[in-house]
């Protein structure tokens, strides 16, 4: 539970790695350590988001709620940054995040996040890079899913024929 530890933690995340120590200190100081219980959802799909989280300890799962029910998108662990998309985009949470184990996070609020974005071009660039990487990954997954779907349909056609 110390500022020094939080700074170390942030530094291990690519997005914050290149940040000046003084900025990192500001970010750490203005963040709060928050604790959640296993099974507790702390980001809820559709709600307005005003903070991003870095997982300090424990594991969480990202869940998408649809009319057909919910499906687990991915699991996130120590040192993951979550919830920043809502800060940058519409403000609405695109998925629900639920603690799998006792979870400790650093909660950083929107105003500090934006202050740093404006104040530090390197940080802004790092955020963009991170988002680009995610788009890339999503495209990859979509491609795989499409290929799978086609193969599946092909197989069905095969059996029918």
């Amino acid at each position: 539970m110390s500022l020094q530890q939080d700074m170390e933690l942030l530094r291990s995340i690519p997005m914050f790695a290149g940040m000046e120590p003084s900025r990192l200190k500001l970010l750490s100081f203005t963040s709060t350590r928050v604790s959640f219980m296993p099974g507790e959802s702390f980001i809820r799909q559709g709600e307005v988001g005003d903070a991003a989280y870095v997982i300090v300890e424990g594991e969480a799962e990202v869940v998408i709620e649809t009319a057909q029910g919910e499906s687990v998108l991915s699991a996130v662990g120590k040192h993951s940054l979550i919830g920043e998309v809502a800060l940058l985009h519409s403000g609405y949470r695109t998925a629900t995040v639920r603690a799998r184990s006792p979870l400790v996070c650093m909660k950083m609020t929107k105003d500090v996040f934006f202050h740093l974005l404006r104040d530090s071009p390197d940080f802004a660039l790092a955020v963009m890079r991170d988002l680009a990487r995610r788009v890339d990954r999503s495209t990859e997954r979509l491609r795989n899913a499409l290929v799978e779907l086609r193969e599946h349909q092909g197989a069905q056609h095969g059996t029918q024929a």
Partner: peptide, 12 residues
């Protein structure tokens, strides 16, 4: 309540 739990609807 610790931060994170000190809000409406929290588990605690």
């Amino acid at each position: 309540l610790a931060p994170g739990q000190d809000q409406p609807g929290s588990r605690m």
